[in-house]
Each structure stands twice: as C-alpha cells, then as structure tokens.
C-alpha cells in the first residue's frame, strides 16, 4: 500500500515535471477556448480556416511572414486549384537569373512559398520600430498555451490600468508576458469583410485566424488523428490477443 502510494506520487511528480509551467513570470491571462481541432477526433473547421486565411492575407501578412507554407498547401483548407493559382498569381515573386544574368519579377506559382512582407529581418525591424514580427508558420506550437495564447493576445488589447508604466511605443496586452507588446492591436470590428458574409467581430476574426494558424502549424493533424484512432484500436485488439496467448501459455505454470 505504502509502495503504491509512493509510486503514484512519483508518477504524478514525473507528469508534473513534463508539463510544468515556467516559474514566477508575470502570469499572462489566457482564456481557454473551444477549438474544433482539440480531442482525439478533432478536425479543422473548413469555413473558419478559410475566413482565417482572409484575415491573415488582409491584416497579418502586412508584417508577418508565413515562410514554411506554399500556396499549393491552401488546397488543404478547401480552396480549389484555380483559386490557389489566383492567390499565387496575385503576388510578384523574384526569380532568376535569366539568360541575361539578371534577377526578375514574375507572378507567383502554386509551388512558391508564401511571399514575405519584408526582404529580411533587418528590413522588418526598420519598418517596425526595431521589433521583429515573428513568422507565423509555427506560432501556435511555439508559444506556451498554443491556440488559447494566440487568441488571448489578439483579444487582449486594453487600456493600461491606472499606475501601470508603459514604455515608449508599446501597447498594453493582458496575455503578453510583462503586459507590454510592440504590436499595435491588429484587429478591430469590420477591418476585414468576410466573403461568406459572417460578421467580422474581433473575437470572430481572432477565432478564425487562430484556426487558420493552428492548421498552418499542424497541417497533418486530421490525418494524424484518423490514423491514430485506427492504430490504437488495432493495437488494443492485438494486445488483447497477445494477452490471451500469454495466459494460455502460462496456464500450466500458475
């Protein structure tokens, strides 16, 4: 009994170690949201993904790159091959050198990676008061709290409370560690007009763009869940059979 309690305590500690929060920072306030892609049967809400892409394209893409995605990947969120071609062709991409030895601009192709808003990090900093807007391809996996955190950042811009000292050019945000973020509030009601007619409130846009970014960071999620459920069921059955064999073989020993 003592042994079991101690074992359970050790196991709990071990799990606690693996998922522990990081220490005594100014605690960001993160609200838990409901996400369609959570849980073992989770999948991405296509409509939200597509609206989220519109938000990214119209708002976020002005400062944030999405370097790890190619335009062809958009077919996974429900865009047709022609729509993808049109999105790609809407940007000018550098290519070359041509036969004259010069670099040239051409319309984008589906196989191209998403075009970054700035040529490099230094250029991005110059355009943003020295702050570097991070690439968003993995942002949902690269932050403690994941989708909830990104959502809370986007909806967490408020007036600084009385007595709170704000540094020059910073914005108060309830979710950002330290509560001062260089990014000005990117979303405001109606800043995007959704093609499907959904009302573009800040929480709606935040929800949609986080769904899109969660897909961008985990494009394999739906396949992973599907294959996972089948695999675990298969293994449970196989393990059951293996147990039956074990009991059979050991029957004469016990």
């Amino acid at each position: 009994m003592q042994k079991r309690l101690a074992a359970a305590a050790a196991a709990a500690l071990a799990l606690g170690i693996a998922s522990t929060a990081h220490g005594a920072d100014v605690e960001p306030q993160i609200e838990r949201q409901h996400w369609s892609f959570y849980g073992i049967f989770g999948a991405f809400d296509r409509a939200a993904e597509q609206r989220g892409f519109e938000v990214y394209k119209d708002v976020c893409a002005n400062c944030h790159s999405l370097n790890l995605l190619a335009y062809r990947d958009l077919e996974e969120i429900g865009l047709s091959a022609n729509e993808v071609k049109a999105v790609a062709a809407g940007v000018e991409v550098e290519d070359g050198p041509n036969d004259q030895g010069q670099m040239f601009e051409r319309p984008g192709k589906p196989s191209d990676r998403f075009k970054a808003p700035f040529a490099n990090d230094a250029a991005a900093r110059v355009a943003n008061n020295g702050a570097l807007p991070p690439d968003l391809s993995l942002i949902v996996k690269a932050r403690e709290g994941g989708p909830d955190y990104v959502y809370s950042i986007l909806t967490g811009f408020k007036e600084a409370p009385a007595g709170f000292k704000m540094a020059e050019g910073m914005n108060y945000n309830t979710a950002f560690p330290g509560h001062q973020i260089a990014m000005p509030p990117p979303l405001s009601d109606g800043v995007v007009t959704y093609t499907d007619g959904t009302k573009a409130t800040v929480p709606q846009m935040a929800h949609d763009v986080v769904t899109f970014l969660a897909w961008a960071a985990n494009p394999e999620l739906e396949t992973r869940h599907r294959v996972g459920v089948k695999t675990i069921i298969f293994l449970v059955i196989l393990t059951g059979l293996l147990y039956a064999i074990k009991r059979k073989v050991w029957a004469d020993v016990h």
Binding site: F234, L235, I237, L238, L241, L242, A244, I245, K248
Partner: peptide, 19 residues
C-alpha cells in the same frame, strides 16, 4: 482454439508489421 488464437494473432501481427 489455441491454434486459432496463434493464427489470428500471428496474422494481425504480420498485418501490423506491414502497416
């Protein structure tokens, strides 16, 4: 019955290995 058990498990194991 035992043979069936071994056969079923063996077959499932082989399928699992291939997958």
């Amino acid at each position: 019955r035992r043979d069936f058990l071994y056969l079923a498990t063996g077959a499932m194991g082989a399928v699992g290995a291939a997958l």
